[in-house]
Design a protein around this nucleic acid. Structure first.
Lengths: 356, 356
DNA sequence: TTGAAAGCGCTACCAG
DNA sequence: CTGGTAGCGCTTTCAA
């Protein structure tokens, strides 16, 4: 049972022989308290290890020092590394985070939630969080569901919301949309430079903005280089290892030759490589690849993954700062540019000495 | 600014021409409301999309339907997969989770927090969470810090606390301590069966319970098989890929031959393999290995990782259920056994056909 | 079935 | 500098 004792400000006031107003002042660092009383109060607080009830506090102050973070799947390194960065900054600013995994589209574990994002939104409003951060999920769909959009509007009508993703009109969210196509161009150019002319694209859920943008960037880059686009070289699936595995199998079954491919992220790259190995296709000798989104372990992979660092950590920092600023009343327009960086390692078969 | 409008129960009552008591009844599914009034109230609630203030609610009801989860690093697959499972069950029971990454011992990213666990504990108490789940961190140290212990005691004096880890006396926590040595025995026996006689142990932070237990199990298993224990074949470090990498380098530099090793988890295994590759030692031909703790991507690795499934998901389910039961007043003693399972894949060089 | 009213624990205003 | 007190928004008796 949760029936453990709870000290209140009244008991502290009693024992310290002062009014609750004075105790409150001491707790909030108000200067208008005599040294003697302050000391007395502090001692009693110490003695009972008293911590003020944040509910009561929040009821008056209208802030809970809590921020809601809504994302699809924390077990995905993309989200977890960002979350860590977000938490670090929240902590410094005194905020705590309510994490909501919507498991949109299913996680790597195949787990699915029974509740949708609207449910979480409602809950966050009820709990009076000071703001909400939305990182992926339904916002990322190329065409956003009407109900979702409505839920998002309602949420953003009630509290500050920052979302990582492309703008959804008729809502009051602040949208931060990093350029994610640029890196693809970098990658394609690099592969071209190495002599590759048949380059495939592997992984990523169809109809999700990031997939869309990258596929488009892929096509544009190809055209820019005077290469033709063959739709059969595009094999989408999802964002996990198993999806890289299946995507490669699909791709190979189409019998269109390719000498290199772009994987939507490191997980997909790993699954892809596994699939190629099972098909006795040598990597990187026969097929080179680059991942569009760098995760943690890539540099320990065999071969070490050449991939694009999209600076998720910086992005995380950016969004939490933006949100906290908005909560604080400073609506500083989020100015930023996170130029992606091609990290050349071994999965394209060369070192080039460019290593950095 | 967070100055968005907030509807309250009063306005709903006004508009519906009933008392706030009636509105409250409607919201809480109390039957003592006439159909007519109920309908009127529901319509107004709908109209304004009213959600009750959980702070005010919690102030009276003494519960916030929020649970605090304290763990070292959510970017570690061990924790994230467990968290997902925990969240799923919390959700069903109506709880939301406050996630606290203590970054104890530093994360894979090298990030460290400025606050310690005691700070989080304090914050969770203030926010009146209904219970706390502690998964790793300082609890896992072989000798627990005095201050930490005191903080833990204070926390558990004030609310229900379930910790995954070995018992720490003088606290009111419920401890759930899965057997983690058993799997090691399985692994060693398997390696022995394959003919290995010089088996090393790689990774894991020294002075952390789980490392300790596994190293001890490793030693016992070796002795059981009539093999001698050579301390030079034990190379500890930490739990990430980079740590597997460094641990192998240390190990090899000692010049004690080994034909197989146990890695503390899949991350370490991956880093280890990379190190061996860099040393031109062939895996699994020259050195076979098994990971003690299976993560997500192991089956896509080259070679596919043979590792031990410790059933973290089940453990997560177990602990959250235990906590929720305690919160609900049922102090059902956590009965369980999670027999680890050796998942044989390729990193020991054979398939054996045992595949399952 | 209904509403009035008493708080939950705290902050902030107002007098003194 | 200090204490009294009016709420914050809600639930829950207690009468009606």
């Amino acid at each position: 049972m949760g029936d453990k004792e709870h000290i209140t400000i009244n008991q502290i006031a009693d024992e310290a022989q002062v009014s609750i107003a004075t105790v409150s002042r001491v707790m909030n660092g108000n200067t208008s308290v005599s040294a003697e009383r302050r000391k007395r109060v502090e001692e009693v607080i110490q003695k009972y290890n008293f911590s003020p009830n944040a509910l009561a506090r929040g009821l008056i102050s209208k802030q809970t020092m809590t921020i809601g973070v809504v994302l699809p799947d924390i077990s995905n390194p993309y989200f977890s590394s960002m979350f860590l960065e977000i938490e670090r900054f929240s902590l410094e600013a005194g905020y705590t985070l309510l994490l909501c995994n919507t498991l949109f589209g299913g996680s790597s574990h195949g787990i699915r939630n029974t509740r949708d994002e609207a449910y979480y939104f409602q809950m966050l409003v009820e709990k009076q969080v000071d703001g909400v951060l939305i990182i992926g999920g339904q916002v990322d769909l190329v065409t956003v569901d009407v109900n979702y959009k409505q839920a998002l509007k309602r949420l953003s009508d009630q509290l500050p919301v920052v979302v990582i993703g492309k703008e959804i009109e008729d809502t009051n969210c602040v949208f931060i949309h990093p350029e994610t196509g640029q890196g693809v161009t970098l990658a394609i150019n690099y592969l071209y430079m190495l002599g590759h002319r048949q380059i495939a694209f592997v992984g990523g859920q169809p109809n999700v903005t990031i997939t869309d943008i990258r596929v488009n960037a892929y096509k544009s880059a190809l055209k820019e280089l005077g290469l033709s686009v063959d739709e059969r070289l595009i094999s989408l699936s999802d964002y996990y290892s198993k999806d890289g595995y299946s995507a490669i199998n699909t791709l190979v079954s189409r019998n269109v030759p390719f000498t290199a491919f772009l994987a939507i992220n490191d997980n997909v790259a790993i699954g892809s490589e596994r699939a190629l190995q099972d098909l006795s296709i040598k990597v990187p000798e026969e097929v080179a690849f680059i991942s569009c989104d760098q995760f943690e372990n890539g540099e320990f992979h065999i071969p070490r993954l050449t991939s694009i660092n999209q600076h998720h950590d910086l992005l995380g920092r950016l969004v939490i700062n933006t949100l906290i600023n908005i909560i604080g009343g400073n609506s500083s327009p989020p100015k930023f540019s996170l130029a992606p960086e091609l990290v050349i390692r071994e999965s394209c078969g060369t070192h080039l000495g460019i290593k950095r």
